[in-house]
Amino acid sequence: MILDIRGRPCPEPAQQALSAIMEKSPGELQVVTDDEDCVKTLRVMLPLLEYKVERVEEAGGGYVVYVRKKGQG
Rank of each mutant, 00 (worst) to 15 (best):
L48A: 12
E50P: 05
V32T: 03
Y63V: 03
E57H: 08
I21L: 06
K52C: 14
V56K: 05
Q30P: 06
M45F: 09
E54C: 10
M22E: 14
R55P: 12
R43V: 02
G62T: 05
G61Q: 00
V65P: 02
G60D: 09
I21V: 10
P47L: 08
R55A: 12
E50H: 14
T41V: 11
M22R: 15
G61C: 07
K40Q: 15
Y63C: 03
K52D: 14
E50C: 12
R43N: 05
I21Y: 03
Y51K: 07
V31W: 04
R68S: 11
G27E: 15
E58G: 08
P26K: 10
L42E: 05
V65H: 01
E36G: 09
D35K: 01
K52M: 14
V31Q: 01
R43S: 04
V39P: 04
V32K: 02
G27W: 12
Y51C: 05
V31A: 07
E23P: 10
E54Q: 13
R43H: 07
K40A: 15
P26S: 11
R43M: 06
V39E: 01
L49H: 07
I21R: 01
E57R: 11
V31Y: 02
V32W: 03
V67Q: 00
M45I: 03
E23H: 15
V39N: 02
C38V: 02
R55N: 15
P47R: 08
R68I: 11
R68A: 13
V64R: 02
E54A: 13
V39K: 06
E58P: 03
G61R: 04
L29V: 07
L49P: 00
E58Q: 11
E58F: 05
T33C: 01
L46S: 00
E50K: 13
R68D: 08
K24P: 08
V44I: 15
G27P: 12
Y51R: 05
D35Q: 11
V67L: 04
P47Y: 09
E36T: 03
E54N: 12
L46Q: 05
L49I: 02
T41A: 10
D34G: 06
C38T: 08
E50Q: 15
T33V: 02
E58D: 11
K52N: 14
R68P: 07
V31T: 06
V56D: 04
E28R: 13
P47H: 09
V44A: 14
Q30W: 10
V67P: 00
S25K: 15
E57M: 09
T33E: 00
V56W: 06
Q30N: 14
G60R: 06
Q30E: 15
G62F: 02
A59T: 14
I21T: 01
P47F: 09
